[in-house]
Amino acid sequence: MLEVNGLSKTYGEGERTTRALAELSFTVAEGEFVCVVGPSGCGKTTLLRCMAGLLPPTSGSVSLRGHVVAGPPEQVGFVFQEYSRSLMPWLSVRDNIALPLRHKRLGKAERTRLVEEAVESVGLTGFIDHFPWELSGGMQQRVAIARALAYEPEILLMDEPFASVDAQTRADLEDLVLRVRKDYGVTVVFVTHDIDEAVYLGDRVVVLTQPPTTVQEVLAVNLPEPRDQVETKELPEFAHLRAHVFRAIKRRQELRPAT
């Protein structure tokens, strides 16, 4: 469904350039949950912005159902890492979620239904008329997820969405994402630097190298469904997979010449 072909991105011109992505290829199948894991600064945000059509690649391409992505496609919903900056502080939760729906040519009733359903599915029903800054970080990220869901995307791109919430909230939000993915039948590309999170959530894990960034390995995760924060993480397969990803990243680091 989604194809990343020889994607590379170099920032800047002339002397001062940063080669963020060297050459990246992988595919995402319909309905799949793909986690992209890599160390900080390896270009995960760059990759996701290219996939969302927010950033033109230097070479290579991203295709969605065979069409090259040149601008933000309407099938894509995006959840940003910086939730507090991605929500408009002057809009209530309801209006924030309704903001992207202006183009959807929906009736008023239909729009209200979409917003309220999305709010309910992220468990914020009582907070629909609050302002984002009246909510905790975890709740704000729920609003951002609800906004993406109400948009009815076929693909959800999530950029380290839980990197700045506490551990318990994070576990809750991970399970929330697994649930809404089923409810809304959406394909997910989830970027994280957290190996446990990638293995816990993903059907497959794309392991990135250090910069200049390429795909180190693509790993199938065959853990039993539904995933459970305690039981899944106790399984020997889970420990095995996370060790495998860890070694893959570490091995690559050791191959790099010391500088």
């Binding site: 933000p72 900056r85 991605s86 903001l99 992207p100 948009y151």
Partner: peptide
């Protein structure tokens, strides 16, 4: 905020919007 603008672009708001 560039993140707010990115958000608006990702959700296909027009330039005027």
């Amino acid at each position: 905020d560039p993140v707010a603008v990115d958000t608006a672009r990702a959700f296909r708001l027009t330039r005027a919007e």
